[in-house]
Design a binder for these strands. Structure first.
Lengths: 354, 354
DNA sequence: TTGTACGCGTTATCAA
DNA sequence: TTGATAACGCGTACAA
């Protein structure tokens, strides 16, 4: 079992100095054709590759991006990672993933672990717990230490950093308007508690659509699910809540859900209660994932273009990383300008709407 | 914008030597109570954290695990990552993810990028293209350079490394036997081409179950899907193939599919053709993911326990990493012993079977 | 054309 | 009790 070969070993073996080897490998004109070839041949033979860690230390740059997301078993987040990875690799960056599991503590710890030299910047989506606590000191600290952050999807606008978001309000509004034009009179929404920023915004879009069409919102048609009730494998609580919603509002003919799971569950419950889809009841879900595409009937959704979000976020981060370069002593006080990019959603119509 | 504070800066500020600071922070008894407190207070104030990169270089150990998987938008792989991450973080390791996108070249490049000091070992599942080419030199080289690999799910037994797999044959067999005991007489299988190791094994299990029950296998009941036909968003090809299967075998009363997508598609096609589930047709799928759980009717599946696989793989790798430590000069020739751990599957019965 | 010396941030060893 | 030095692997400015 031979260890990885280093410049030092090559130098010793060939009886030249380390810097000669280094230069020879980088095709420096300082080195004679002769030794250059000799060194390169030897390096190839032993499959020499520069040690990334040493380079990172020397350059104070790891060429690695840290991603922190609440959970990975989630089509949207996976898609975003795919997008980030695509762009990052193309530009010579690696990607390192940390999961917060929707926990504040894990988010903080994970960021600390990564921020100590392992990565050059973060791309992240905030955990629910953090949003609820509204404690953002770890983001501020990270940024103050000169490490850029790009937030996506679940963002906090107080934090000075680039952001990539979806037009949640508009996307939700378009969806609800679709239901309205399709003839729905009694549209329910299944959403999250308000501290989840995207849930709140989508609820806003729902209300706005109603208002525009002079439909009086009814609080009994608004179900705000407390996802603390929901463990991964116990969906009974959710089903019961949804069932209650239908039973206390017999006239419901449209449902807008802020995520796939809520929509699929609503569909299941509705069918059990005898609704025919889309004749008696039409549904649209935010987030386009596997569930929507493959459910029967298939679900109409608001697509968020997760991969595009990831790509955009990676581009923003890398641009900033390569721009900041050498900013150390110059216009330190110059006000930084941050972008917030809005990725347009679009409505994908499938079988759950007419 | 203050850069991260280093030992050197603290030393200068407090007018002591770097090594004094280092020792003070590590609570060395060599240092006087007095200076120790002074240093620690200062370090806390400036939020000092040791630079991971420098530590990695010094210790020749990054405490980071590299994961290479074919794709992330896949419930099973996501679950495995979750499991790996869980164990890794608990033991002080980070996790860095590379995607091969089922491509041989990307697999090789990704491994090279990571193997140069960034990580201490790999956990990976082989890409389809690699399996097809049967070119495994990159695995062999990596292992020869002293970097341990743990393979999971899609493995190659020729490579000397630890492996975590599922009892694919047995799991498939149990599933098909369930269909048989439930009264199915004409059971079709929807599987992959044979070069996908797990597809082949599951097909084997299917055949074995039939044989045990003295049922003659019929090639017309075996559909081997060529997934090169299938782009992410074009599932028509798959649907057509499945439809053909049903139309040329009117007596099919049971379907075993090697993954969720195939199963859900089969269910959709069958319902379109007028089958009632589970009365006319029963289905079981390998792989337990979101699709199965939330489809209507919900799908009975063979659960692979992705998270358990990830946890086991991480444990294997970390154990080996911490065992190898200092093995440099001792019994170098001692034959390494590798484990292959088999994670038992179990059948989850839902509405698609009686 | 080649080699020496330094620094990136840390720790371990040895000297003061 | 503290400090100087070397080392991890690399690249580069400068000296030979």
């Amino acid at each position: 079992m031979k260890r990885k070969v280093t410049l030092k070993q090559i130098a010793k073996e060939l009886d030249v100095s380390i810097s000669t080897v280094s230069k020879a490998l980088r095709n420096s004109i300082e080195i004679s054709e002769d030794t250059r070839q000799k060194v390169q041949a030897f390096a190839k033979l032993y499959n020499y590759r520069p040690n990334n860690i040493a380079l990172s230390l020397k350059n104070r740059k790891s060429n690695t991006i840290g991603i922190i997301i609440p959970e990975i078993v989630h089509h949207f987040f996976s898609k975003v990672i795919t997008g980030i990875e695509l762009v990052a690799n193309k530009k010579g960056y690696n990607v390192i993933v940390g999961l917060s599991n929707e926990s504040f503590d894990k988010e903080v710890i994970n960021m600390q672990m990564l921020a100590n030299g392992s990565i050059d910047g973060f791309i992240l989506s905030i955990s629910k717990e953090t949003l609820q606590h509204q404690d953002y000191h770890h983001f501020v600290e990270t940024i103050n230490q000169g490490m850029p952050i790009v937030m996506f999807d679940r963002v906090v606008h107080e934090i000075p950093c680039d952001k990539v978001i979806v037009d949640d309000v508009k996307g939700a509004k378009k969806a609800v308007e679709k239901l309205i034009t399709n003839g729905c009179k009694h549209i329910a929404i299944i959403t999250t508690k308000d501290y989840v920023s995207v849930g709140k915004l989508r609820t806003q879009g729902y209300l706005s659509a109603l208002e525009d069409h002079k439909i009086e919102p009814k609080s009994s048609l608004i179900l705000k699910v407390d996802d603390k009730l929901l463990s991964d494998d116990n969906l009974d609580a959710l089903e019961k809540e949804v069932e209650l919603l239908f039973q206390s509002n017999k006239k419901i003919d449209g449902v807008f859900a802020v995520n796939e799971l809520y929509a699929v569950t609503a569909m299941k419950v509705a069918r059990k209660l005898g609704y025919s889809i889309p004749d008696d009841l039409q549904l649209i879900s935010f987030t386009d994932g596997v569930l929507s595409k493959h459910s029967t009937p298939s679900l109409s959704t608001v697509s968020q273009h997760g991969q595009a979000i990831g790509e955009k976020a990676a581009n923003l981060l890398i641009n900033r990383l390569e721009m900041d370069h050498g900013d150390d002593n110059e216009y330190d006080e110059e006000e930084e300008v941050y972008e917030t990019i809005i990725i347009e959603t679009n409505l994908i119509e499938r079988e759950s709407t007419k």
